[in-house]
């Protein structure tokens, strides 16, 4: 994979070393170590409760890790708020429940952060938002409210909202799990297009077809750690670990 030349070039997009996280006494992450390069598409799969969501929520600090290091674009994730804000501006996130702002129109949802965080003018932000809506295939919905859209359309707006900040890394937390089956494809199509454009992506998903087709690498999570990782061909055709074999036999 040709690495996209960004930032200070030589540093990888994301480096995790022995990341650990507890919720009370429950250990959600028990030492995650992985490195993700620029332009790489990584799919994270695993049974529920295995820590996949917690892992990507740690990457933009929606959860804070308690041990280990996370370095995003050369900046280590610490408690320094300014560092966190700077990292969040470069890392977009798409949620399972979309989390669109219901009191704002689609257009306002997308332009809110560019105007307030990136200090762009309204006209400027709106013309960019129109391009993004075109890109995710719903240019005609700009003046509607989220509640008037279908689930698939809402999730595509959520993707456009993240892209409006021109992030270099996108995190997807089970983006299709709350959707009706007929709407999953329209969201996956947008994500495929995004992956082909060279975006660095981490995707937590149960869509094995997507993983097979788009991923450069698959991480299999269980008990808060990476049990097995590899290319999709290796992972789906020749899994090494017993836990992986069991999981694949249950879902395929």
């Amino acid at each position: 994979m040709a690495a996209k030349q960004t930032g200070n070039g030589s540093t990888p997009a994301i480096v995790c070393e022995g990341v650990k996280k507890w919720f009370g006494d429950f250990q959600a992450l028990s030492g995650v170590t992985t490195t993700i390069g620029w332009g790489e598409v990584v799919v994270v799969i695993g049974p529920s409760g295995s820590g996949k969501s917690t892992f990507i929520r740690c990457i933009n600090r929606l959860e804070s890790h308690q041990a280990g290091r996370i370095v995003v674009d050369g900046r280590e994730m610490t408690n320094d708020l300014r560092n966190i804000d700077a990292i969040r501006r470069d890392v977009g996130m798409v949620f399972q429940q979309f989390n669109l702002f219901p009191h704002l129109t689609v257009m306002e949802n997308i332009t809110l952060a560019p105007i307030w965080v990136r200090n762009r003018t309204r006209t400027d932000a709106e013309s960019q938002a129109r391009q993004l809506l075109e890109r995710v295939g719903i240019p005609e919905q700009a003046d509607k409210y989220p509640g008037q859209l279908s689930g698939g359309q809402q999730q595509r707006v959520a993707i456009a909202r993240s892209l409006a900040m021109n992030p270099r890394i996108m995190l997807f937390d089970e983006p299709t799990s709350a959707l009706d089956p007929e709407m999953i494809k329209e969201v996956l199509d947008v994500m495929k297009e995004l992956a082909e454009s060279g975006m660095t992506m981490i995707v937590v998903t149960h869509e094995m077809g997507f993983a097979r087709e788009v991923a450069h690498r698959v991480l299999f999570f269980d008990y808060g750690t990476v049990v097995e990782e590899g290319t999709p061909e290796h992972f789906f055709t020749n899994p090494q670990h017993d836990r992986t074999k069991l999981f694949l036999s249950q879902i395929l």
Binding site: G92, M93, F101, V117
Partner: peptide, 10 residues
């Protein structure tokens, strides 16, 4: 809602 707002950088 709060998480989404923080995640887009607000």
């Amino acid at each position: 809602q709060y998480e989404a707002a923080r995640a887009v950088g607000l």
